[in-house]
Amino acid sequence: MLIGVPKEIKNHEYRIGMVPASVRELVQNGHDVIVEKDGGMGIGFSDQDYIAVGASIEAEAATIFAKADMIVKVKEPQAVERAMLREGQILFTYLHLAPDLPQTVDLVASKAVCIAYETVTDTHGGLPLLAPMSEVAGRMAIQAGAQTLEKSNQGSGMLLGGVPGVAPAKVVVIGGGMVGNNAAQMAVGLGADVTILDRNIDVLRSLNIQFGNTAKVIYSTADALESEVLAADLVIGAVLIPGAAAPKLVTKEHIKKMKAGSAIVDVAIDQGGCFETSHATTHQDPTYVVDEVVHYCVANMPGAVARTSTFALNNATLPYIIKLANQGYQAALQNDKGLLNGLNVIAGQLTCESVAIAHDMQFVAPETALANCV
């Protein structure tokens, strides 16, 4: 199989779909890999590094999209990239379709085979390709939040951990999954006053054992959420419903009542965000203010630590890339139920039910859609 790795073109996105070590594994499995010129420069890899492990370099993304059997990316394809997809071509990347109707319509029209990292599952129902970026984003959320609270960024001017004689900032984390857990770890480590909200009793028990007296763990009722958010200096939105649009848990009314200079970091923004006042921002222009509350809603947060993120992501995606290349998409999807769960679009059909619900579009079960393509 010919695998294509284009350069990412989203704002301040320096990650790349495959590092040279991953390319070497594909080449050793008998496949060909083409990488766009300077695609790895953002994380310190030259074209020569890719050539040394057996890849070929192409000057333009258009050539890669025209030639490759499978496109491996990091972020969702932008409009110019979607226009280059073709029928039967495999696209393996993050998609986040639920809040993105234009992308959904374009991918369906392309008749490509679109497999989303974020909906691939493992044998335990976990999300193995979302997990590494969730870990990165959770940890980055506290770094971003700490900076957002600085006075020069229109925040209240609070130091997360305080100093002797001065109380620390109150950090509220909504959601105790992978993102929330990692955010809480960082906030606790910096000495903040941390509260984690979640509705899963098993998750709460696990968090209680993990954090002990270093963080408060509270069941997330509407009353508890409102009380904690209004008292917070920094709120981290870490809610995830796999494949679906994030629920808007923090309302405009909550934001109006929050303390002036407080901050929110909406890590769920890729799925539409869990604050009613959220809209996606970029690393170039990361924040805006609503009702004196500073909003940080960067849609590709891990791109800021591109080298760490790329390696972490490649560690997770490489076995699936090899499986798709060695077996072809039909056999790979038939033989791996978790990978089949990652199938969002195929042959002009939408196969992710939560995305279909979000856009009021027709849904075809992935098994049925795949059977029609064999």
Results as ranks from 00 to 15, higher is better:
residue 193 D to V: 07
residue 192 A to I: 08
residue 273 G to C: 05
residue 190 L to H: 00
residue 321 I to C: 07
residue 215 A to Y: 02
residue 92 F to C: 06
residue 74 V to S: 02
residue 87 E to Y: 12
residue 363 F to V: 13
residue 335 N to Q: 15
residue 123 T to F: 11
residue 295 H to A: 04
residue 116 A to T: 08
residue 243 G to S: 12
residue 341 N to I: 05
residue 75 K to R: 15
residue 272 G to V: 04
residue 351 T to Q: 08
residue 90 I to Y: 03
residue 2 L to D: 02
residue 365 A to E: 15
residue 374 V to H: 10
residue 148 T to D: 05
residue 154 Q to I: 09
residue 43 I to A: 01
residue 318 L to I: 10
residue 259 K to Q: 00
residue 52 A to I: 09
residue 72 V to E: 08
residue 94 Y to W: 12
residue 247 P to D: 14
residue 270 D to H: 03
residue 99 P to E: 03
residue 111 K to M: 02
residue 52 A to L: 09
residue 345 V to G: 02
residue 113 V to M: 08
residue 1 M to G: 10
residue 14 Y to V: 09
residue 289 V to N: 01
residue 97 L to W: 01
residue 166 V to R: 03
residue 110 S to W: 03
residue 338 G to W: 07
residue 6 P to E: 14
residue 343 L to T: 02
residue 240 L to D: 07
residue 348 G to Q: 05
residue 230 L to R: 06
residue 131 A to V: 13
residue 62 A to E: 15
residue 34 I to F: 10
residue 282 T to D: 01
residue 112 A to V: 10
residue 12 H to W: 12
residue 268 A to T: 08
residue 253 E to R: 14
residue 279 H to Q: 12
residue 89 Q to S: 06
residue 123 T to C: 11
residue 19 V to G: 07
residue 340 L to Y: 00
residue 45 F to R: 04
residue 254 H to F: 13
residue 314 N to L: 09
residue 105 V to T: 14
residue 215 A to Q: 11
residue 331 A to V: 15
residue 255 I to R: 04
residue 24 R to E: 15
residue 177 G to P: 09
residue 242 P to G: 11
residue 187 A to P: 07
residue 135 E to V: 10
residue 270 D to S: 06
residue 189 G to M: 04
residue 86 R to D: 12
residue 77 P to E: 07
residue 112 A to H: 05
residue 330 Q to W: 11
residue 203 V to S: 11
residue 218 I to K: 07
residue 281 T to I: 13
residue 91 L to Q: 03
residue 276 E to C: 01
residue 123 T to H: 13
residue 226 E to V: 05
residue 115 I to V: 12
residue 12 H to T: 13
residue 367 E to L: 13
residue 340 L to R: 07
residue 1 M to E: 04
residue 243 G to H: 06
residue 191 G to A: 03
residue 337 K to A: 14
residue 357 I to S: 13
residue 140 M to F: 00
